[in-house]
């Protein structure tokens, strides 16, 4: 499903964020990307989601070479992913329902069909009763779950989450992890970046540990 081959990434004017990283994640697998902050976790996820392009090496997503994609195709590539961002990236000028609606509208799904799917996604993360609430009124855990609802509403094959439990206390964090595990069980490939190695020790999954841009455990 996802294959990195000798991938390096260097941002202009800085050191290499990733060096010679190679790994493979199969369909339906759950993978954790761990490492200290600044180890290159976010860069790795961005390369997967076709947000960044590698400086060297190849990134294959479902047999498509991300670095060779024409710019016009990139948006369609990104729709294969559900993304949960480190800072949520919720839109605070609209309510929960409209936040979750965004990926569907981008995909051209509107009207009743969209409403049905939005409510299903909100229901899955336990926010069905709050569809009219504004995100700013939600707690940190609820905001994170809203971000997850938005990521899964268009039923992506791959779910990528960057530090989804970063600012949450343990009970909330466990809840969120359970949620990801549930998605994995219905066949979604799930990739989670976290600096918190304790929270995931009891969850079975592939471990990708980054240290200063190098992959140490695979």
């Amino acid at each position: 499903m996802i294959r990195f081959d000798q991938v390096s990434k260097r941002y202009p004017g800085s050191d290499e964020a990733l060096r010679n990283v190679s790994f493979e994640i199969a369909q339906g697998e759950l993978a954790f990307v761990t490492g200290h902050s600044g180890a290159g976790k976010s860069t790795l996820l961005k390369l997967m989601a076709a947000i960044e392009r590698p400086s060297a090496g190849t990134v294959l997503i479902g047999n498509q070479n991300v670095s060779k994609l024409r710019p016009r195709i990139v948006p369609y590539m990104r729709r294969k992913f559900g993304l949960v961002f480190q800072d949520h990236k919720l839109l605070y000028d609209r309510n929960c329902f409209e936040n979750v609606a965004l990926p569907l509208y981008i995909n051209g799904v509107t009207g009743q069909e969209a409403a049905k799917r939005i409510r299903a996604a909100l229901d899955k993360v336990g926010l069905l009763g709050k569809e009219k609430a504004m995100p700013i009124t939600l707690s940190g855990g609820e905001q994170q779950r809203l971000a997850i609802a938005r990521a899964v509403v268009s039923r992506p094959a791959i779910l990528i989450a960057d530090e989804p439990t970063g600012n949450l206390d343990e009970t909330y964090a466990a809840e969120i992890m359970a949620l990801f595990h549930a998605f994995r069980q219905v066949g979604v490939t799930v990739i989670i970046a976290t600096h918190d190695a304790h929270g995931i020790s009891n969850i079975p999954g592939k471990m990708l540990h980054l240290d200063h841009g190098r992959l140490t455990v695979s």
């Binding site: 948006p75 990104r78 729709r79 990236k89 981008i106 995909n107």
Partner: peptide, 16 residues
């Protein structure tokens, strides 16, 4: 700006 950024990240075309 935020809306545009998020839309772009989750696969909106420039036309959209």
């Amino acid at each position: 700006r935020e809306e545009i950024e998020v839309s772009k990240l989750i696969g909106a075309t420039d036309g959209f």
